[in-house]
């Protein structure tokens, strides 16, 4: 298999390593969901609470206007300082965050609003009370909700896509990823701790886990990469605007492919959403190997 990175000519500057990308994705001044909302959306009305337990400030959402249409925007939100980080739990959602997201998705469905999600979390909250309130169940319900949601969904990994906490708002018709974002089943640090018994091996883990946007695109998991000619924290306006263009284009593509205003169009869109994730996997069928080798050469 080849990647865009592999195909770069040798006189190009050395491509950033996976660990470089991890550091870029986590840069403290990298734009967050709120920055995207402020720059790309107008009339944002934030909607709070899961109507069950509380309001999780690590996962925010609301209705807003995006390039002329009313949409539902939902995204992870960490803090920009220690105080805000604590109130937003460092962007790690608790069960009430996922349940708020589900509520907003059903709301979007009721009014036929496309959903735009912005993914930026190190993962789900690993706390005692989150377990008591069914962290696993809440994430699973989010996945189930998104597979049935009868409006277009465009998901974008804007920084760190961390495991189940990211995936919980990551099921859609299009998955976009910024060039310096990462998306992983576990943090490189967790992987290093578990498989090397040494957190210092995180850079090696990041490399072998294939967490970069180019890897995710090569694997057919991500549909498109938003380029960052300069890292997003160095050129936030340009990168945010480009991200908006990609999201708009993705929404237009879904509209024209499925005509989600009609029942048949919705059914086709949900079929395609199912097919997109149904096709993700890397396995072989040894019984077919056997058939191949059993085929006589003559």
């Amino acid at each position: 298999m080849t990647t865009d990175v592999d195909e770069m000519t040798s006189d190009a500057p050395p491509a950033p390593t996976a660990w470089d990308r991890v550091k870029l994705a986590r840069a403290t001044d990298r734009p967050t969901t709120q920055d995207y909302v402020a720059a790309l959306f107008t009339d944002f009305v934030e909607l709070h609470g899961d109507r069950l337990f509380g309001d999780d400030r690590a996962l925010i959402g609301g209705v807003a206007r995006f390039r002329g249409s009313t949409v539902m925007v939902i995204g992870h939100q960490g803090g920009t300082n220690t105080k805000e980080n604590i109130s937003r739990n460092f962007g790690m959602p608790r069960p009430e965050g996922y349940r708020k997201a589900q509520r907003l998705m059903r709301h979007a469905e009721k009014f036929g609003l496309p959903i735009v999600t912005l993914i930026d979390t190190s993962g789900a909250d690993p706390g005692i009370s989150s377990e008591e309130r069914g962290q696993g169940t809440a994430i699973a319900e989010s996945l189930m909700t998104m597979f049935g949601c009868r409006v277009p969904i465009v998901c974008t990994v804007i920084a760190e896509g961390g495991s189940g906490g990211a995936l919980a708002i990551g099921i859609g018709d299009r998955l976009l990823m910024l060039e310096n974002a990462i998306y992983a089943v576990a943090s490189p640090e967790a992987c290093a701790t578990i498989l090397w018994r040494d957190v210092e091996k995180a850079p090696e883990a990041a490399e072998t886990m294939r967490v970069t946007a180019a890897d995710c695109y090569r694997f057919g998991i991500v549909d498109d990469i938003v380029p960052e000619p300069q890292p997003a924290h160095e050129a936030p306006q340009e990168v945010i605007a480009a991200t908006g263009d990609f999201i708009e284009q993705a929404l237009r593509d879904i509209q024209s492919a499925f005509d989600p205003e009609t029942e048949d169009g919705v059914a086709a869109m949900l079929d395609a959403r199912y097919g997109k994730f149904r096709a993700i996997g890397a396995w072989r069928d040894a019984s077919l190997d056997a058939l191949d080798s059993a085929t006589p050469e003559s």
Partner: peptide, 12 residues
């Protein structure tokens, strides 16, 4: 990430 995506595939 293939592993993570099996959560989506199985739920769907």
């Amino acid at each position: 990430l293939f592993s993570l995506m099996q959560m989506a595939k199985t739920v769907s």
